[in-house]
C-alpha cells in the first residue's frame, strides 16, 4: 500500500464512523416523542404498537433511505467529476435528474388515469431514457465517448427536458403542479422498505463498478492520452463510468427525488482532506454523503415540527453558499 493511500485511511474511517453514528442516531430524533422502552417491548403486538411503528416504519426506513440516496449521489458525483474532468460536475449535469423529473411529472399529471404507474418507477424510467439519449448522442459524433460531446449533450438534454416539464406542468391542474414542485424538493419519507429494496440492485451494481473504476479514473485525471499509454482502456472506462454513475443516480432520485448539492459538496470536502486519489475519495464520499443526508433529513424533520421542511431545501441552503465558496476560493 502506498504511503498517501495509507495516510488517507483514517479520514475515510472517520467518514464511515460519521455515517454509522448518523444512521444510529437519526431514528431517535423526530417530530414526536416516543417511548423507547415500548419500541423494543414484545409485550404489545407490533400491529398495535404505535411507538414501534413510528420507529421501524416511519423513522428507520427514512434514515436508511437517506443513507442510500446520500451515499449514492456523493459517489456518483465523484465519478462524474472524474469522468468529465470538471470539478463543477454533479450527478445531475448529464440530464439524469431532469429525465427522472420528467417521468415523475408525467406520472403525477397523467398517472391517475393509468392505474398502476407509480411515481418511483416513472422517474426511474425517465432517468434511464435520458441516459440512453445522452449516450447515443455522445457516440454519434465520436468512436468512443467524447466527454465534451457528452457534456454538451447532457446540458442540452437538461434544457430540453426542462422545457417539456414546463409543458407538462402547464397541462396539469393546481394540485398536480403543487405536488410536482414538492417532488422536486425531495422527500425521504419512504414509509417501509420496499422502495429502498427496489433501488438496491442498481446501487449495488453501480458501487461494484465504482470500485473497479477508482484506479483507471486516477490515471484518467492525467488526460486520456496519458492514461491510454499506461494501459487504460479509455473508451470502456468512459462508458462504464457514465452508465454506472447514471444508473445509480437514477435509482437514488427515484427514491428521494432530485435532492441537490450532496453530489458536489461531499466529494469536495472529502478531497480537501484525503487528496485526489479516487481509491480514498470514492469510499470517503459515499460514507460522508450518507451521513450528511441522514443528518440533513433529521434536521428537516424537526425544524418545523409537526410539519417538515423538504430535505432538498436544507441541502440547498447549505450547498448554495458552499458552491460559491468553491468557485471563488484560491487554488
Amino acid at each position: 500500500m502506498t504511503l498517501p493511500l495509507r495516510r488517507g485511511l483514517p479520514a475515510v474511517a472517520m467518514c464511515f464512523l460519521a455515517m454509522i453514528a448518523a444512521i444510529l442516531a437519526a431514528p431517535f430524533i423526530g417530530s414526536t416523542t416516543i417511548h423507547f422502552g415500548r419500541v423494543f417491548s414484545t409485550a404489545v403486538p407490533f400491529a398495535d404498537n404505535i411507538d414501534a411503528q413510528i420507529f421501524f416504519i416511519a423513522r428507520l426506513p427514512r434514515a436508511l433511505a437517506a443513507a442510500l440516496v446520500g451515499g449514492t449521489l456523493a459517489a456518483a458525483g465523484v465519478i462524474f467529476q472524474g469522468l468529465l474532468r470538471n470539478p463543477l460536475a454533479t450527478p445531475y449535469t448529464l440530464g439524469v435528474s431532469t429525465g427522472s423529473a420528467l417521468g415523475a411529472m408525467l406520472a403525477i399529471t397523467f398517472g391517475a388515469s393509468l392505474p398502476f404507474v407509480g411515481i418511483t418507477s416513472a422517474s426511474l424510467a425517465g432517468s434511464l431514457l435520458a441516459v440512453l439519449i445522452v449516450y447515443f448522442l455522445a457516440r454519434a459524433r465520436h468512436a468512443g465517448l467524447s466527454t465534451t460531446v457528452l457534456l454538451l449533450a447532457g446540458v442540452t438534454l437538461n434544457a430540453f427536458f426542462s422545457a417539456l416539464i414546463l409543458f407538462v406542468e402547464y397541462l396539469s391542474d393546481f394540485a398536480q403542479t403543487f405536488r410536482a414542485i414538492r417532488w422536486l424538493m425531495g422527500n425521504l419519507d419512504v414509509v417501509g422498505y420496499s422502495s429502498i429494496l427496489g433501488a438496491l440492485p442498481f446501487v449495488v451494481f453501480a458501487f461494484a463498478v465504482f470500485a473497479w473504476l477508482a484506479r483507471p479514473l486516477n490515471l484518467l485525471s492525467l488526460g486520456a492520452d496519458a492514461a491510454g499509454t499506461r494501459g487504460v482502456n479509455v473508451r470502456s472506462v468512459h462508458r462504464w463510468a457514465f452508465f454506472s454513475a447514471s444508473i445509480a443516480t437514477g435509482a437514488a432520485v427515484a427514491v428521494g427525488g432530485p435532492i441537490g448539492f450532496v453530489g458536489i459538496i461531499v466529494p469536495h470536502l472529502v478531497r480537501l482532506v484525503v487528496g485526489s486519489d479516487h481509491r480514498l475519495v470514492l469510499p470517503g464520499s459515499a460514507f460522508l454523503g450518507a451521513g450528511f443526508l441522514v443528518a440533513c433529513d433529521a434536521l428537516a424533520r424537526i425544524v418545523l415540527a409537526p410539519l417538515e421542511l423538504p430535505v432538498g431545501v436544507i441541502t440547498a441552503i447549505i450547498g448554495g453558499p458552499f458552491f460559491l465558496w468553491m468557485l471563488i476560493r484560491k487554488r
Partner: peptide
C-alpha cells in the same frame, strides 16, 4: 393544506 409525514400520521 399541509404535507404530513408517516410519523405524524402514526403520532
Amino acid at each position: 393544506s399541509v404535507v404530513i409525514s408517516s410519523e405524524q400520521v402514526l403520532a
